[in-house]
């Protein structure tokens, strides 16, 4: 699989990553060679193989719907870049 500069720019946008223009072609090269490595998987037939999502095939554990944790909003917001009245601040979204 060969990715070009446009592909890298598209993927970087999907991942919300700002990439320097100067680095785009190096990423295109690296990512293409990683995908080449990955494509070695195609050397084996897996048509009748059950996909494995969890190493021991465990299923999601359920619990009673009870409140156990206490509210620690102020404690957790102390490390936020910008908060006001208990809300996280970001640049204006709606004009």
């Amino acid at each position: 699989m060969s990715l070009d500069k446009q592909d890298v720019e598209k993927i970087a946008h999907l991942a919300r990553l700002d990439i320097n223009d100067a680095d785009v072609s190096a990423y295109a090269q690296n990512l293409s060679s990683i995908l080449d490595l990955v494509e070695q998987m195609n050397s084996v037939d897996t048509d009748n193989v059950e996909p494995m999502a969890h190493p021991t095939d465990a299923v999601q554990r359920l619990r009673e719907d009870e409140v156990k944790e206490s509210n620690q909003r102020e404690h957790f917001q102390k490390i936020a870049p910008q908060v006001e009245d208990g809300l996280y601040l970001v640049p204006k979204v709606i004009e």
């Binding site: 970087a12 999907l14 991942a15 919300r16 990553l17 990439i19 680095d23 990423y27 995908l35 990955v38």
Partner: peptide
Amino acid sequence: DLEDLYKRSRGEAFGAEVKRRIMIGAY
């Protein structure tokens, strides 16, 4: 704007290997 906040915060703070893996994953 918000998108610039996401993109530059992530772009400036993640190193090259982490960016490679995030992009492979997103792809």
